[in-house]
Each structure stands twice: as C-alpha cells, then as structure tokens.
C-alpha cells in the first residue's frame, strides 16, 4: 500500500467546458472572466491525495472474479481485465476544499457553482490520469481504469474497496449511505495490469 500527495498547478479548461455541456465548442467565449476567476479560486483549494495497492487477480467460473480484496461477478469488469493477472486498486481525491467552494457558491452564485463543479470534476480526472501513469510506470502496461458503477460493476463494491485501502484513514474520503464518496471529487478505480507472458 502506498499513500501519495500530489499537486495540480493548472487545469485543462477544455475538459471543464466539456463538463459544462459545451458540445463541440472549444473556447469559453463570453465567460473567460468567469473561468479565470473560478480557476484562481479552485487551484489553491486542491489537495490531491491517493492510496493504492496491488492485488492478485483470479478468475472463477464465467464472470466470477476474485480481486484479492473482494469477490465480484461482473461481465464488464471481466472483459476489461482480460489478459491481466493482477490489479492495482486506487482511491484518489482532490480534497474537501473544492466541496467547500462549491457549497459556498451554490448559495451565492449558481454560475460560479456550475463552473466550479465542472472544474472539480476535471481536476480529479486530471489527478487520476497522473496517478494512472505512475502506476503504469511502476507495474507495467495496464488496461483502462475501471470504476464501480461502470457497466454492471456494482456501486456496493465500494464497501469492500474502502477497508481494503483504509481509504478514510489514509486520504480522508468517506462513503455516504448511498455509497457515494465525500469529499465528492474523489475516484476509486481498478487498473488491470497486463500479464508479462
């Protein structure tokens, strides 16, 4: 198990615009001021942290998978993990500061709330990309990361991911009754590491 801290010094604004519904529009015409204001608010509030650990992967009958920390039935994950003999499980977050900012502007300015929400989502994805790249360089070529709720992989699996990585203790992320993560700009994912053979 490894706990890491990161730093995000700039955001991919195109991603933010995509989350805001700017289909096919690449520039922030008319909202440049809003975007740069929100960016300058959000950057100091980001506190990227992650924890990850590798686990052996065993395949059972059909779509039965033993992930080392939990057993699960999932057709989509089984397909994703084809050609892999172990996995790296990670949990990542950009921290509670973003949620505080969103909560603040959710009360004061819906425009800023919407942009901050999109930026927070873009930020945690950016942090996951960075982490994923580190995992690949440490463990070797990997399949695209896969999270609970994708395809038929149940959200309930979060209940087993959290103790396996001691997510709350290590990076402060908690689960709500509905199995959503708080701070909300957090991600857990399974990265299948391709077999060497």
């Amino acid at each position: 198990m490894k706990v890491v801290n990161g730093k995000i010094s700039a955001l991919d604004i195109k991603e933010t615009l995509r989350y805001l519904g700017y289909a096919g529009v690449k520039s922030a015409d008319g909202i440049e001021g809003l975007i740069s204001e929100c960016e300058s608010m959000i950057l100091p509030s980001l506190s990227p942290k992650a924890v990850y650990s590798s686990f052996p992967l065993e395949r059972g009958e059909g779509v039965n998978l033993d992930l080392g920390f939990a057993k699960v039935q999932s057709k989509s994950l089984a397909r994703n993990l084809e050609g892999c003999d172990h996995i790296v499980l990670f949990a990542a977050t950009v921290g509670a500061g973003v949620d505080r900012l969103i909560a603040k502007y959710n009360r004061l300015s819906p425009a800023r709330a919407a942009v901050l929400q999109a930026m927070g989502a873009a930020a945690v994805e950016q942090w996951c990309d960075e982490l994923n790249a580190d995992i690949v360089s440490e463990y070797g070529p990997a399949r695209p990361r896969f999270s609970c709720g994708y395809g038929d992989l149940p959200l309930k699996l979060q209940r087993e991911i959290f103790p396996a990585l001691q997510v709350t203790k290590n990076i402060g992320v908690t689960l709500t009754e509905g199995d959503f993560m708080m701070p909300s700009k957090s991600v857990t994912a399974i990265v299948g590491i391709k077999s060497k053979s």
């Binding site: 805001l20 700017y22 909202i31 809003l34 300015s109 425009a111 919407a114 942009v115």
Partner: peptide, 14 residues
C-alpha cells in the same frame, strides 16, 4: 438553440 451555454444562462440569471 444551443448557441449559448449554461454558464452564460446563469450569469444572466444572476
């Protein structure tokens, strides 16, 4: 008509 997007709609609303 999608010639203007959510942030602008909200800025006007504010």
């Amino acid at each position: 008509k999608k010639t203007l997007f959510l942030p602008q709609l909200l800025m006007s609303a504010e």
